[in-house]
């Protein structure tokens, strides 16, 4: 159950691992934008995105198997969206039963889009530890300080939440065992019965979380915590050439896709004009 805890960091020393977490997050977001920019019928853009992920995976020294594993968890979602397209898209000509050619194309398009996005996201969590991710998000949000957004507090909340996930999972296991020892039944009955059976687990968990929070607050006070004022930071992030290269690459991807979209548009316009 412990593996559930937010992403599955794959520790390694690689080009991508060494990159600045802020840059990686921004690149991942830009990459997703690129995937969304690819319009239907222009699958060449997807090819470019796939190439981008492949290059990143090789540079990250992450086994392909691990990256592909992320697709497994969303396979149901992919199939569901594809099936919807297949059966409910009425445009185009019927190829087989109720399935049209446009529906087929759209299904493929959606499958490619979801898979590419998940690949990119999983590559980010595989190469960036949760702590780095939290730090990276803090770094990205830093300008919001300008509008009095409590960036430091937000980041601290995130990192404490990450820190307590495994602790609370352990605690849940313990409570479930304790309730089972008292004769609680979590396995039988319909879904509502089973959900109701969880109440005796959730209430002790909630109460103990509050107690933990109290103790944590005392411990933080004892270690002179007084908010973000006059605080220094031990870990500093550095934006290096590596990150610049990544940014250039993803920018190239977006420009390429936009160009491709417009190029097709132009050529189509040209054929239409020619036909006229």
């Amino acid at each position: 159950m412990r593996d559930l805890s937010f992403g599955s960091y794959f520790p390694a020393i690689s080009f991508v691992h060494k990159m600045d977490a802020r840059a990686k997050i921004l690149i991942a977001v830009a990459y997703m934008v690129a995937v969304f920019l690819v319009t239907a019928f222009h699958f060449l853009g997807f090819g470019a995105c796939l190439l981008f992920v492949l290059i990143a995976t090789i540079a990250a020294k992450v086994p392909f198997k691990l990256v592909l594993k992320s697709i497994k968890t969303i396979i149901f979602f992919v199939v569901f969206s594809a099936v919807l397209q297949l059966f409910f898209n009425k445009s185009g000509t019927v190829v087989f039963w109720v399935i049209t050619d446009v529906g087929l194309l759209n299904a493929g398009f959606i499958i490619a889009r979801i898979i590419l996005i998940v690949l990119g996201a999983s590559l980010l969590t595989l190469t960036t530890s949760p702590v780095e991710l939290a730090d990276g998000i803090e770094g990205i949000l830093y300008p919001l300080k300008w509008i009095k957004f409590p960036v430091h507090e937000f980041a601290l909340i995130m990192s404490i939440a990450l820190r307590f996930i495994p602790t609370l999972i352990d605690e849940t296991d313990r409570i479930i065992k304790a309730q089972k020892a008292r004769g609680a039944d979590f396995e039988s009955g319909n879904i509502f019965k089973r959900a109701k059976a969880l109440i005796p687990v959730l209430i002790p968990l909630l109460i103990s979380s509050f107690r933990r929070a109290d103790e944590l607050a005392d411990a933080m006070d004892s270690r002179c915590y007084a908010g973000s004022k006059n605080r220094t930071k031990y870990k500093k992030m550095h934006f290096t050439l590596r990150d610049l290269l990544g940014v250039i690459l993803v920018a190239g991807l977006i420009v390429g896709i936009v160009f491709l979209n417009n190029f097709y548009l132009l050529s189509e316009l040209a054929t239409i004009a020619g036909a006229l």
Partner: peptide, 22 residues
Amino acid sequence: DNQLIASIVEDDIAFGPENLGI
């Protein structure tokens, strides 16, 4: 368990000195 605030040992130990502005 209720005193450690970071998921990495050195980050946790840095918490106090960071608060002092060192």
